[in-house]
Design a binder for these strands. Structure first.
Lengths: 200, 200
DNA sequence: CGTATCCGGTAATGGCCAGTACCGGTAACG
DNA sequence: CGTTACCGGTACTGGCCATTACCGGATACG
């Protein structure tokens, strides 16, 4: 039920669809900054320049709002179809590192980190959060590495699933626990010093 | 100020020092299970078979209690002096994987994960939590890897600081986000397939 | 011994904040 | 046009705990 029941038959003014995006974006911003517990509905409303009523007219609770925001965040992912294909794994992985994507990934990781405490209790959220976000990054890596294996660039007995987690895991740790930014140097070093050696 | 001011000059019964450990242990257990927000003072009291007053007689707030518990958790670390020394890096790292340590590390990671949302807001906690816990594990790895470099077992230009984070980061991701246990197979694979190739 | 203080319980107190109700104003249905 | 429902604001309500206050026993200091 990501989209609430918007099929109206009644009279009068309709919900303004442009407010939705503003509210969901504000939700992610606040989540990334202060986590689920620190996030107050009023902060989201204020940042979205909306009244609390406007939020509650769309989502029945804070929890539902957060679930939709996180789910939507997971949907704007890299898109497994349009992955780079430069002919080498190193080139592919580095092509994945565009500055906008890095910033976006950083926000995603921060959102998830601020959510970990409720993952255990809330079932659907854990799914959306983990699978849809870091998960997409891992999936992209999996595809790229598998290609390298098929191409003979990487050794045939490599554990693709396992190695696909390498870069996202290390990055998540750097962002969430060390509080550092995700810079290109770090990622390039990860590819050259760790991932590629592991595939030879 | 880890230890409260216990220098009493007044008359009457003293604080029973054996209650402290029970309460701090209970705090860590609850934190690992439900995170900071989900943790209610009453849960801790109940698990420690204590009254709430007994807690508040020792710590002025939930926050202070958690800080001391987490700080103390950081102090029972591997102990950089008694690190294994088997002659090979592989042997050393695997010797570090004792079942009790794995269970303890898993609890630590779960505690930290349930705390991430408050790390941003509370300064000292982030320090205690990150540096003192995963940090100790990273430090142990750093020492072992440096030894391997000195010994000529690993290549001389290896970035020891960087590689020391490999196993702890990957393990933390596995425990905190994937919710899986930290088993020996996973760690051995990490050493053989990732760390050692990166050092050749 | 006498009493100050602790102990494990349990019953207030009080603040924070999700959720609700309304307000004056406005846009979009019939 | 006349409703009806929305919009951004701003109270108000109610529940959940952190924190405090007590209770009827222990206990250890002087």
């Amino acid at each position: 039920m990501p989209e609430n029941d918007r099929t109206r038959t009644t009279r009068g003014r309709q919900l303004d669809p442009t407010r939705d995006a503003a509210i969901l974006d504000a939700t992610l911003d606040v989540l990334a900054e202060v986590g689920y517990t620190g996030m107050k509905i009023e902060m989201v409303a204020e940042r979205a320049k909306a009244g609390k009523g406007t939020l509650y007219r769309r989502w029945p609770s804070k929890e539902e709002l957060v679930i939709e925001a996180v789910t939507r965040m997971g949907q704007r992912d890299v898109g497994a179809e349009q992955l780079p294909d430069t002919g080498t794994l190193r080139g592919d992985i580095i092509a994945l590192i565009r500055p906008e994507l890095m910033e976006e990934q950083s926000q995603k990781v921060r959102v998830i980190a601020g959510l970990t405490s409720m993952l255990a209790s809330h079932e659907g959220l854990a799914e959306s959060a983990n699978n849809a976000n870091i998960g997409a990054w891992i999936t992209a890596n999996r595809v790229l590495i598998q290609r390298a294996v098929d191409r003979g660039e990487a050794k045939a007995d490599a554990d693709v699933d396992f190695l696909a987690r390498l870069i996202p895991s290390m990055s998540a740790h750097r962002i969430a626990l060390e509080g550092k930014a995700l810079d290109k140097d770090f990622l390039v070093k990860l590819v050259d010093e760790v991932l590629l050696p592991a595939l030879r």
